[in-house]
């Protein structure tokens, strides 16, 4: 159990450090690399809780496919370094207090919740269980979600194509 906690602490620290670095880095590629670190650390956390399939898919979909597209677009556009500016007064007086309130609220509710720290406890362990849930019990929301994504995809295509036809 102690080894598990040690691994959890390391992965959590890496994830948080990656997230902070994502915001602080000035070059888009470095930010993207930080985000990849966060994704991989999250996959490790999933693995720690016994959710093997989700962990692998997390790396394949987020770490591999989506972030590769990010990096690819940044490379293609040859985006330069971002300039650092002072915070706007709006961010200063509204954003910072709201952020602090949000963090406190999150800490309060997470502290009160009884978390299932193990995927095995919920009974969904193997790929087979997961697919049974997705394609039997929750098949309607699942298909609806894919339909929504399709609509978003078509919408993006229409918006991007409009200039060409005129």
């Amino acid at each position: 159990m102690t080894a598990q906690i040690a691994v959890f602490l390391v992965l959590a620290a890496v994830a948080v450090a990656g997230a902070i670095s994502l915001i602080l880095q000035r070059h888009p590629i470095h930010s993207a690399l930080s985000l990849i670190t966060v994704m991989v650390a999250l996959a490790g956390l999933y693995l720690l809780q016994g959710a093997e399939f989700v962990a692998a898919v997390q790396i394949i979909v987020y770490g591999g496919a989506i972030m590769v597209l990010f990096v690819f677009v940044i490379m293609l556009l040859n985006a330069g370094e971002e300039e650092r500016t002072n915070m706007s007064s709006m961010a200063h007086y509204v954003g910072v207090p709201l952020g602090v309130v949000f963090v406190i609220e999150m800490a309060y509710w997470i502290g009160r919740a009884t978390l299932h720290m193990n995927a095995r406890a919920s009974g969904v362990v193997s790929t087979r269980d997961l697919s049974n849930l997705l394609f039997r019990e929750y098949v309607f929301p699942f298909e609806l979600t894919s339909f929504l994504i399709l609509i978003a995809l078509l919408g993006a295509l229409v918006l991007a194509r409009r200039e060409e036809s005129e």
Binding site: I36, A56, I59, G63, G64, A65, V71
Partner: peptide, 8 residues
């Protein structure tokens, strides 16, 4: 998963 990361 490893193959998909290999692109980087």
């Amino acid at each position: 998963a490893i193959t998909s990361m290999g692109v980087y």
